[in-house]
Every structure is written in structure tokens, then in C-alpha cells.
Design a protein around this nucleic acid. Structure first.
Lengths: 239, 239
DNA sequence: CGGCAATGGTCTGACAATGGACTATTTGCG
DNA sequence: CGCAAATAGTCCATTGTCAGACCATTGCCG
């Protein structure tokens, strides 16, 4: 019954270099910086990540070698995302990593996801959205529907993150992003069915509509149903 | 409309020493290690916080000098919590710090709190609790009612944290703990009224009852109403 | 064409943090 | 009494991280 494990946890999940890699990877995998787009300049990014430029550059070099980004110098140069998830369809380590951290973590991450994302949907619906925010949401939702198997995970994440974002709480958006990275790691270990994707599109429409209509209750329920799909999938494959 | 500020945020909120201090302070202020109780031994705590023993010791020394803990060596020695919140009734810096980070942060932290704590209450109610968990919850709730002005904040936090804990999600419990630290910092800047405390006791009873009854909907609503009290207070004082 | 601005690339000296070995103190137990 | 165990306190060589200055490349614009 001791809860100190929740507060006496590691203050940092690795060294500065590893955490920088993790963050940039997050931006790429969650579609925050889409393929072909440029990351912020090194100096700015280093400042924002609270890390020295040396350390940041080591992180970028690692990502270059892994094929995630490419750097060009000169004016209008920069570091560009070169990632295509279809280029690495099945990470051989994925399943091993996942099974190693089971099953305690599965429940943790899924419970947390439910709280965060259902809460975000409700909070988003409860807010008075600007015209721009409404447009943004609809645009991203349309983009998800035009995704193929290689880009679905990225665009789906982007939509969910956009919902969290319009609650106005940066902390909430960050938490959703972190949680999604963990969930996606699990999802990478199991197959993605076209049938599920199509079902998700319909659910996304329902969620967005409820949010735009300002119906918090319905937005929450719709989100909960949507999440239940992948939750059941994960529980089935990994138990 | 760029959401990268949620992911390109600092990877660490300070140096190892500062973060260690922050964590131990969290354990003390949220009542996770009550006054008079012992912290884990240095070696163990250093390992759990992912920090070298030297760094941890510096953090402990800082907390000793601030009067939060006392250390004794020898067998059955250790570092003991010596904190009494009534000993520092009004932090003169509190208001200055708070006003400096306003008002963006107020909305952020309160929205986030709503999502986390309402979600935690719902998730807790949706779970099949063990007899021990039910007992624990009731015990802590009773302790809050016996609190005085000096211990209320601590015991209140402990109850909310216990609710998050029984969802079974460590990530959620950690997030609630972090968020509560931020909210408490704001609350330290405004007066605490006896009338509000008594109202809170009644609300706590309602929340715990709904959770024990397995009524997620009611638990969520009760928690939302409870949170609205301090939210209105904060918005009133700080706007 | 030549300078300028924006970017990535490199170097170095100072400081922070680590981990591991060692010491000192206290208490219970054979 | 003397030893063993559990704890806090100290030291040090090694490695990680930082801040900032400087260099190299590229492309726009006067």
C-alpha cells in the first residue's frame, strides 16, 4: 500500500543525450514535424530542450545514422525529417521489448491513456473554440482519412494530439504525447488491420463532431469507445 | 497552431541536485512520508531516484538546513521527516513566484488537474477494489477529517493521491502528484478558510462513497465539483 | 559580384555527476 | 564484551555536460 514508488521514481530517464534523442523521435513519430519538414535550428532546439548544443548535436548525429533525419548547411539549410515508417515495417526488437515490460505496464499505460484522452476530449468539447481551432481539427481529421498503412499511426497521433492541444493545457498535451509514444511502441509489435483503420475513421468523425458541437459527454464516450478498440487488441495479443 | 512546444520542452527541470530536492520535498509535502517517518536509506533512495549517492546527499543536506529533515547515523538511523507546515505559515516569496507565472499557467494547471483527478476518480470507481484498498481509502478519508489547519493540505493531498493510486496506474499517480505540487504552490499564496475545509470534508465523503459503490459517473461528478471549489478560489484571487 | 545572414560543424576549458571504495557511528545479539 | 549489521559521512579518479567562441557552407539581395 506504499505509494512512494510513484514519487521516488528516477528523476531522469537516461542521460541528456538519450533524452534528446527520445524527444526528437517523439516529434517525428507523432507527426509533429512531418516528413520533409525542418526541425528548429540547432541553437534554438538546444535551448528549448534545455540541453547544450553539443549534446543536441550528438543526438542529431545518432538520428542521422539511423536514417531519421538529414542535415544540410548554409542559409535555409537545417535538419530535415527523412522518416518513412514504411521503411521499417517490422522492428525485430519490438516484440522482445514489449514482452519484457509486460503485463504490469500494459495496464498502467492503458489506464493512463483512458484518463488522459477521454479527459482531453471532454475538456476540448467544453471549451469555446476559435474558428481557426475548429478548422485545424477538421483539416487534420480529413488528413487521417486519406492516410495509408504507412502513415496512419503518425496521422492518428497527430489528431489525438491536436485534440489535447486545443484544451489549452500544455501539460496535458505533453502527457498525451508521452503516453502515445508508449502505446505506439506496443502497437508496433502487433499487426495493423485495414478493417480496424476504417472503423477508426468513423470514430474519429464522431469524436470531432462532438467536440465541435460542444458536447463534452458525447465526446468523452466516443473517445472511450475509440480507445477501447486498440486496448482490446493489445490485451488480446499480449496476454 | 504549432504544437511542438509540448514536445520540444526542457528534458530536465534543473540539475540532478535540484530535481532530487524537489522529489523528496514532494514526498514530504504530499504526506507520502509523514512527519516523524523515515526516508529510505541513502543508497536505496539514490538508486530509486536514479542519482548518485553524492548528489542525493547534497539534496538531503539542503533539506536539513531548511529544517525539513534530520539525519541520524548508526543502525536504525536514517533521515527522518521533521516538517510541520504550520512552522512556515506564509512563505513571503510564494505570492511573488505565483504572480510571475500567471495567468497562462493557472489555466494549464487547473485544466490538467481536472482531467487527471476526475479521470482518476472514474477509473478508481470502475475497478474491483480489494478489501485492503477499500479500508485504506476509508482510513485516509477519516484522517483528513481530523486534520487541523496545519495538516489539512498534506492529508488532503494524501487522499487524492490514494485515489489515483488505486486505479493501478503508477503513471497516473505520478502525474497527479506532480500536478498537486504545482497547485499547492498556488494555494500557498492565498488564505485557507475553515468554511472551505468543512465543505471539502463533505465532498470527500461523497467521492469516496461513489468510488466504493463502483459508480464511476457519480465519482467523476463529485470530484469535479470538489475541484471547482479551489479552482474558483484560485481564479478569483489570481486574476 | 560581394557582402550578409542563417544555418550546420568544431574545439576547448570549466564544472557537474558518477560509482566505488573506504570510514565512522550506533544498536542489537551471541 | 565484542562482533555483525545497518546506517550516515568522506574521498577521488573518471566521465558527462555545458557555455561560448570560432569556422565552414550556402543562398539571397543590393
Amino acid at each position: 500500500m506504499n505509494i512512494d514508488h510513484a514519487v521516488f521514481r528516477p528523476v531522469r530517464s537516461g542521460n541528456a543525450f538519450e533524452e534528446a534523442v527520445e524527444r526528437i523521435l517523439q516529434a517525428i513519430k507523432l507527426g509533429i514535424v512531418p516528413t520533409g519538414e525542418r526541425l528548429p535550428p540547432e541553437r534554438e532546439l538546444a535551448t528549448r530542450l534545455g540541453v547544450s548544443r553539443m549534446t543536441l548535436r550528438e543526438a542529431i548525429r545518432a538520428l542521422q545514422q539511423a536514417g531519421y533525419v538529414e542535415s544540410r548547411r548554409g542559409r535555409f539549410g537545417g535538419t530535415f525529417v527523412a522518416y518513412r515508417s514504411s521503411s521499417a515495417p517490422h522492428d525485430p526488437d519490438a516484440l522482445a521489448k514489449v514482452v519484457a515490460s509486460m503485463p504490469t505496464d500494459l495496464d498502467d499505460v492503458l489506464t493512463y491513456r483512458d484518463v488522459l484522452e477521454v479527459g482531453a476530449a471532454r475538456a476540448a468539447a467544453a471549451r469555446a473554440l476559435t474558428a481557426r481551432e475548429r478548422d485545424h481539427l477538421v483539416t487534420i481529421q480529413a488528413e487521417v482519412e486519406n492516410s495509408d498503412e504507412g502513415t496512419y499511426r503518425q496521422l492518428d497521433s497527430r489528431l489525438h494530439l491536436a485534440i489535447a492541444e486545443i484544451t489549452g493545457s500544455t501539460s496535458l498535451a505533453s502527457a498525451v504525447a508521452d503516453n502515445r509514444m508508449r502505446v505506439n511502441e506496443l502497437l508496433d509489435a502487433i499487426p495493423l488491420l485495414q478493417h480496424n483503420i476504417e472503423h477508426s475513421h468513423a470514430q474519429h468523425r464522431g469524436i470531432v463532431q462532438a467536440i465541435l458541437a460542444g458536447n463534452a459527454e458525447r465526446a468523452g464516450v466516443a473517445m472511450a469507445e475509440h480507445l477501447e478498440g486498440t486496448a482490446a487488441l493489445l490485451r488480446g495479443f499480449l496476454s
